[in-house]
């Protein structure tokens, strides 16, 4: 009998559904944080190049996106809580999972973190609804950012024995950078699509430094986490965790490639004669990037559900 070269993908109880619920929660958190960062950092710098009507339409679309993101984030967080409570309590039915939820919420670290995240998201929603001006309240960026950072506590960062401070810090940095960059892609897409080509070029120019900074932070944190959680080549190529990590790295490579294409080829073309055609291609490229971002986030959610590659012999 031949040994399979495909490693075991030992997902935690709850399997793919639990990983999916975790992934949707991360995606919504990223979308919220990325949209708020975009609104505070990138959009104001493009305002002088926009007419009042263009600005009004763009800001309204982004504020709607932020509102939708916070609503989805709260709903996804609570759904994930029930799924996770069911998995922890070995529940077989939804009713059993719901009955286990209060105890999981009050008696586990996972539950405590979910409670704080839910409060922060609710505070963000209130701050967004009360912002009179176009700009969201600066505090909303902080509350959303802390909710993103706290997600580091749901993964392996606070569980492994080695590097009790550095690993959570690395994970928090990874999440913040991912949130600002990947979460900023949909706002970028909306801005480029809704603005005249010249303004779209300006948006890309101002989004680029943020993207570069986030990419560097993500790569540094990925290398460190890979070192700690995988540790060696056999664990990288011989475990399910290693395979998913490689897949995530490949997706990040594709994202990087598209970012380079956008910044140095398609965005400058917005100022050229065939600007409308370039705008269409840029919108398609950013949409593709957004799709890859969702895949990266789902891969991250699966990674958090798998035992790290570096495991002691059983």
């Amino acid at each position: 009998m031949m040994n399979s070269v495909v490693p075991v993908f030992d997902l935690a109880e709850g399997g793919l559904w639990l990983a999916f619920a975790r992934g949707v929660t991360i995606a919504a958190l990223f979308s919220l944080f990325g949209t708020l960062v975009f609104l505070r950092v990138v959009a104001p710098r493009c305002r002088p190049r926009m007419t009042d009507l263009e600005a009004m339409r763009a800001w309204r679309a982004l504020r709607r996106l932020a509102g939708l993101s916070v609503a989805v984030a709260i709903a996804a967080l609570l759904t994930w809580l029930v799924f996770q409570a069911g998995a922890i309590a070995d529940a077989v039915t939804l009713r059993q999972a719901l009955l286990a939820t209060p105890l999981v919420l009050t008696a586990t670290r996972f539950g405590h973190l979910v409670m704080v995240q839910a409060v922060l998201l609710a505070a963000t929603a209130v701050l967004l609804s009360r912002s009179a001006s176009r700009q969201p309240h600066a505090l909303a960026v902080w509350t959303a950012g802390v909710a993103v950072i706290l997600h580091a506590g749901h993964g392996h960062a606070l569980s492994v024995a080695t590097h009790p401070l550095l690993l959570p810090a690395s994970m928090a940095l990874h999440l913040l950078a991912g949130g600002a960059w990947l979460g900023g892609l949909v706002p970028l897409l909306l801005f480029v699509r809704m603005s005249p080509p010249q303004t779209g070029a300006t948006v890309c120019r101002y989004f680029s430094p943020l993207g570069k900074l986030c990419l560097v932070a993500m790569l540094i944190s990925v290398v460190f986490q890979g070192w700690v959680l995988i540790g060696n080549v056999p664990a990288l190529i011989g475990t399910g965790y290693g395979w998913v990590a490689l897949g995530k790295l490949a997706l990040l490579g594709l994202l990087f490639g598209l970012a380079v294409l956008n910044r140095y080829h398609l965005a400058p073309a917005l100022r050229a004669a065939n600007a409308r055609s370039a705008q269409v291609w840029l919108v398609r490229s950013i949409a593709l990037q957004t799709g890859f971002s969702v895949a990266v986030i789902l891969a991250a959610a699966v990674l958090a559900s798998l035992p790290p590659g570096f495991q002691p012999p059983s």
Binding site: V160, T162, W227, F310, Q311
Partner: peptide, 14 residues
């Protein structure tokens, strides 16, 4: 030095 001191990550309660 930090990277050099990295040891195995024993996630999950063994």
């Amino acid at each position: 030095l930090t990277l050099a001191s990295v040891g195995p990550a024993l996630a999950h309660a063994h």
